[in-house]
Design a protein around this nucleic acid. Structure first.
Lengths: 225, 225
DNA sequence: CTATTAAAAGTCATCAGATGATTTGATGAC
DNA sequence: GTCATCAAATCATCTGATGACTTTTAATAG
């Protein structure tokens, strides 16, 4: 029974180290055994040990200090959470991003600066139609508008998460769905700007929600096929 | 003038490789120069090159295939987005997480299963008070309740992002704020369960928002000091 | 000429040994 | 007790060699 886990020694060594950390046998802040000891423990050469350690260092789990040793920085891989997000289905990612949009608009209505409104109005004008410069360019301009709405919320964490979702989604959209999603009208976008500018959080949230809903429904139809 | 850029050769080699990828000189899907060439390009030994490549592999930028070569998987470091989120201020992270909570409750009201409601009622009972088993344990039980609300939304992407924020926030909370935040009452939590169970999305969202607001205000006061 | 097979070249994977750079703790002088 | 010095421990880096795997090329049979 030869398992299909055809992996190299470096990877399995890194996995071993990771499990030691995860199991708490090497607590955070503690120094792990030196390279010579790891060579014995893992039964691989020093170069392989170093590559495995390097992998965990680049993931933020370990830290090497020349002359001193190698220390545990964290028990769990922070990037693992992000990987799990990326592995959730496109529909959930899209919905989560849409909800961020809604709440960001609500905050934007309360906190926007005059400069924010000016930026939104400018981006709305520049958005134009699909005919101007091709579909890809239009999507970029559309994204810039929505990102500006999130930016007007004044919450940097939301901006970063929104960017993350946008990047993850556009990767998939570009390769699978080709122009199958409805493009909300300029009028719907204009209403968002006015709602934010009015300072009414409920109106701002509703305006974004209203125009996200049909897109989400269409996405559901496409993905159910 | 010795700048504090005290880094090792492996790190700088990895940075060089990363910049080649980021600049598009090594497009996604393409094979990068072989190890011998990289040794010449970077002016370091083969072991160092391999460690640098290994670092980028573990970050998902490169992929090595024995006998074939090393290939570019992505242009941008996905983990970088996560780092940027972590570097945003605690207040913004808390707010973003709270807004996820609100929208998750709205979805939960629409999509919850009977099992979800049963779980929420059980966790509400188990939540108890701070007196039961100490503050840390109470926080864990409280988190479990809120996570269940998000889970009832049926959106896995939101669950993962929520977990990410929770992990990032509790790291800081545990070390800086010691019991300075108000603990919403059992009654407020019970109202969330009832609102979700009622199937009214606006009521569910409002119930979560109502009890997040005072916490956020208190956090603002604490952080402004 | 085509398809199959075999050889060869190219590339990463791994091992082994040696030397340098840095940190850390001990030793000893004052 | 404080400080300088030294030695041990540890990671960083280089060099050379061999193995494993993939891809390309060449040879061969049909």
């Amino acid at each position: 029974m030869k398992q299909a886990i055809r992996t190299n020694l470096t990877e399995s060594a890194a996995t071993s180290l990771r499990s030691e950390i995860a199991a708490g046998r090497w607590p955070v802040g503690e120094r792990i055994p030196n390279e010579a000891t790891l060579v014995e423990m893992l039964g691989v050469s020093r170069g392989t040990v170093r590559e495995a350690v390097r992998a965990l260092v680049s993931q933020g789990l370990l830290e090497t200090r020349q002359g001193s040793g190698t220390y545990v920085l964290a028990t769990a891989d922070p990037a693992a959470a992000l990987d799990r997000v990326r592995q959730t289905c496109l529909r959930d990612q899209w919905e989560a991003r849409a909800l961020l949009d809604v709440e960001a608009a609500r905050l934007a209505a309360l906190r926007h600066t005059p400069a924010d409104i000016a930026t939104l109005r400018r981006l709305l004008l520049e958005r134009g139609t699909v005919a101007d410069g091709g579909r890809q360019a239009f999507i970029r301009r559309d994204l810039a508008f929505h990102r500006a709405v999130v930016g007007a919320s004044g919450n940097q964490a939301m901006v970063e998460i929104y960017d993350f979702f946008t990047a993850a989604i556009t990767d998939v959209i570009g390769s699978t769905l080709q122009g199958d999603l409805p493009e909300p009208s300029d009028q719907a976008h204009a209403e968002i700007v006015e709602a934010v500018a009015s300072g009414d959080p409920d109106r701002a949230a509703a305006s974004v929600r209203a125009f996200m809903t049909p897109v989400l429904l269409q996405l559901d139809r496409l993905l159910s096929k």
